[in-house]
Design a binder for these strands. Structure first.
Lengths: 145, 145
DNA sequence: AAAAATTATATCGTGCACCATATAAATGTG
DNA sequence: CACATTTATATGGTGCACGATATAATTTTT
């Protein structure tokens, strides 16, 4: 059992690092997404659907590590924008299946350029980014209830 | 100029990693902070003031990488809870100085236990955490406008 | 098969978080 | 010194984000 010393300096706290990084990432994405009329949470939802279309609300919420009560209104906005459709699963009427529309699929073409630009702007190497994603994945597993 | 390949897999995207990590961290902190009647943004604000008391709204906003329009209502809530006081700077009436009250200072005794518990629960080593904070700091600098 | 427990979404209330804009104090310029 | 510009905070509107609760469909238990 190794003892880890708690940092006294606020700047050294991992929670502050993740918290502020999220603010900066969100604003940086907004520069690209604003002209598409999307927010980052809406965009990452589309990214998931581009990879795996026709998923339930719960499945999307799991991918985003987010409450379904947050997701429902977001999905309604994406529906109102015409990018997704929401229909009850005939096999299990409790489930709502979210599917991409033609409009939602079309947005996909914009995505690679945005991603590439964001990655470049981080100023991090490919290895550093890979390591970052792996470390945060481990942290997420540890802190999960 | 090194070319970095953009990941196609949503799980590999650094933005998703930071985004979901923030959700998990927020909920994990809430388990500790709930009984103190604090949210994480309020708590990290207090952490900053414990380190550097009597700071302006703008200085705190800079530390949290957050708009002052977000911070003002948060600070009013902390004031209503009795943890801070807000007074205009006599030397520059535009500035609002936020200072800890006795109540706000008292909360500090709870902090080390919370931090230690959170660090342990991440399941990350001291080196991994240090590296994570450093990497996110670099990312933040790169993405800043 | 009826009752109980579980599961999947949705609704409601509070608190961030941002942008655009407003206001007022301080500073710079003619 | 008057006027424009900049700086510091606040206000209003939209969209997350979460916990508590509601509702309805499925599954389990009796």
């Amino acid at each position: 059992m190794t003892e880890i010393s708690a940092p006294e300096n606020p700047d050294d706290m991992f929670c502050h690092a993740v918290y502020t990084a999220w603010h900066v990432i969100n604003r940086a994405y907004q520069k690209h997404l604003g002209r598409l009329g999307l927010t980052y949470p809406q965009y990452i939802t589309l990214i998931y659907l581009w990879d795996q279309d026709a998923r339930s609300v719960g499945e999307i919420a799991g991918f985003l590590d987010m409450d379904t009560s947050t997701l429902t209104p977001l999905l309604k906005r994406l529906e109102r924008l015409g990018h997704v459709s929401r229909t009850r699963d005939p096999k299990d009427e409790r489930r709502v299946i979210v599917s991409l529309t033609a409009s939602g699929n079309k947005l996909r073409t914009q995505s690679p350029a945005v991603t590439a630009c964001m990655i470049k702007d981080t100023g991090l190497s490919e290895d550093q980014l890979t390591d970052l994603v792996r470390t945060l994945g481990k942290l997420r597993i540890g802190l999960k209830p």
